[in-house]
Design a protein around this nucleic acid. Structure first.
Lengths: 206, 206
DNA sequence: TGTACATCAGTGAACGCGCGTTCACTGATGTAC
DNA sequence: TGTACATCAGTGAACGCGCGTTCACTGATGTAC
C-alpha cells in the first residue's frame, strides 16, 4: 500500500521482513498458487535469487509467512478482548475474532493451517506463534468454566471442542464449496455467533 | 490391489473408469501433489496423452475423481444408516460416517472440499454427487427435529450448524497441525461423538 | 582517523525438472449398404 | 456375409512454461588494528 522507498543502494536493508510482507500481499491479491520465490522477488524488484540469502528454501519462507500470520491473528484476538471483563463475552470475542481473521485473510489462513508446511514443529518461530494463539482460546475457555462451573476440570476437552467448531466455521465461511449459501451470504457473522452459542450451550448444559 | 488384467489389445476398453480409480489410488498412497495426468497414465501403463481422450483437461479428471469420492461417501453414509430407526441414532450415524470417511481417505476428502476444483457447479456430475450427500444430512436433521420438536422450522439453520461442526471435526482430525494431540491420538471417534453430542444438546436445549 | 580484509547481501546466467498440453500419426472398432 | 469408411482411442515425439535452486561473481558494510 504505502509506496516502497526507491532503491538507492546495492543493499536492500530490510529484505527479510519485506519478503514476508510481500508474501502475504501476494496471498491476499493473487492467492496461494501465485506465491513463489520468483514472484516475491519480482514484486520487490530484486533478483530472483536474492531471497535465498534470507530463507534457505521456499519452505522456510512459507513458515515465516505463516508465523507472521499467527502473530497477526494473536494481535487481532487480543484487540478484541481489550476492555471486556465478562467471561462469556471474552470467549465469544476470541472466537469471533478468529473467524473475522479467517474471512479477511482466507489464503493466509489456509497457509497457516494447510499441508503446505508439512511439519510445523520444524519451525520453532511458527510453532511458538501458533501455540500462543491457541493458548488465548484455552485461557478464555478456562475462565468461562471457572465462572460457570467453578472448576476447570473439563477445560481441556472443552477447549478442543470449541476449537473444532471454530475451525469448522472458518472452513465453511472461507471455502464455501459444497455448502449452501443462503445463510452464509446474508449474515456470516450472525451465523458464526449463533453456531458458537449453540455449542457453548451444549457445553454448559450437561 | 487386484492385479490389473494384462493389456492384450490396442484399445484399453475401460480406461475412463480406471483413470478415476487410479487417481484415487494415487491420492491414498502418494498424496495430492502426486496426482498428475502423467502419473495416472504411468501407473496404468498407458501413454501420457491417452487420458486426454477421456478427460479434456486435468480439471475434468479431478472433478470426476471428486464426484466419485462423493458417491463413495454417500454409500458409506447410507450403509451406516441401514437398520437404524431412531432419529437420534440416525443423525449420529450420518455424522460419524462422514468423519470415518474423512479419516480413511484424507487426501480424497481434501480434494472434494478444497480449492483444487475452483467452481464445482461447472461439473454437473460432481455437483449432483455433492448435493446428494448433503441431502442425507439434511434429512437426518429434519427427522431429528420432527421427533424432538414436532417441527422442521429450524431445520435449515440446524443442518448448516451441524454441517459446520462436522466439517470442523473432519478438518481437525484430518489435518492435525496446530491442534493438541492428546485427545485425538487416543480416541478420535470418541472425541468426534462427544463433540457432536455437545452441539446437538445445544440445538435441543433452546 | 585510516586502512586491510572478512563477511554480508546483492547480481545475472544457467540447470534440470516435471508438468499440461499440442500435434500428427495409426491401429481397432462399428456401422451403412 | 462382405466390404468401405468414418470414428474412436491409442502412440510417441515434442513444445513451452515456470519453478526451485546452483554457481561464480561483485558491490557494500563493518570490524580489527
Amino acid at each position: 500500500m504505502t509506496p516502497r522507498p526507491k532503491k538507492t543502494s546495492y543493499h536492500h536493508g530490510n529484505l527479510r521482513e519485506e519478503l514476508v510482507a510481500e508474501g502475504i500481499a501476494i496471498l491476499e491479491t493473487q492467492g496461494a498458487q501465485a506465491l513463489t520465490m520468483r514472484e516475491v522477488a519480482r514484486r520487490l524488484g530484486v533478483t530472483q535469487t536474492a531471497p535465498l540469502h534470507h530463507f534457505e528454501s521456499k519452505s522456510a519462507l512459507l513458515a515465516a509467512i505463516a508465523a507472521q500470520g499467527f502473530r497477526q491473528l494473536f494481535d487481532h484476538r487480543m484487540a478484541a478482548l481489550k476492555g471486556k471483563r465478562d467471561p462469556d463475552e471474552r470467549l465469544m470475542a476470541v472466537l469471533m475474532a478468529y473467524v473475522e481473521f479467517a474471512l479477511a485473510h482466507p489464503a493466509l489462513y489456509h497457509l497457516m493451517h494447510g499441508p503446505e508446511i508439512p511439519d510445523k514443529t520444524l519451525h520453532p518461530e511458527l510453532n511458538d506463534a501458533a501455540t500462543r494463539s491457541y493458548s488465548l482460546l484455552e485461557a478464555a475457555v478456562g475462565d468461562y468454566l471457572i465462572a460457570h462451573e467453578g472448576s476447570m476440570a473439563r477445560s481441556r476437552e472443552a477447549t478442543l471442542g470449541i476449537w473444532t467448531v471454530c475451525q469448522g466455521v472458518a472452513t465453511v465461511l472461507t471455502n464455501p464449496q459444497n455448502t449452501p449459501r443462503y445463510v452464509l451470504r446474508k449474515d456470516p457473522m450472525g451465523f458464526s455467533r449463533r453456531t458458537f452459542e449453540t455449542f457453548i450451550r451444549g457445553v454448559s448444559g450437561r
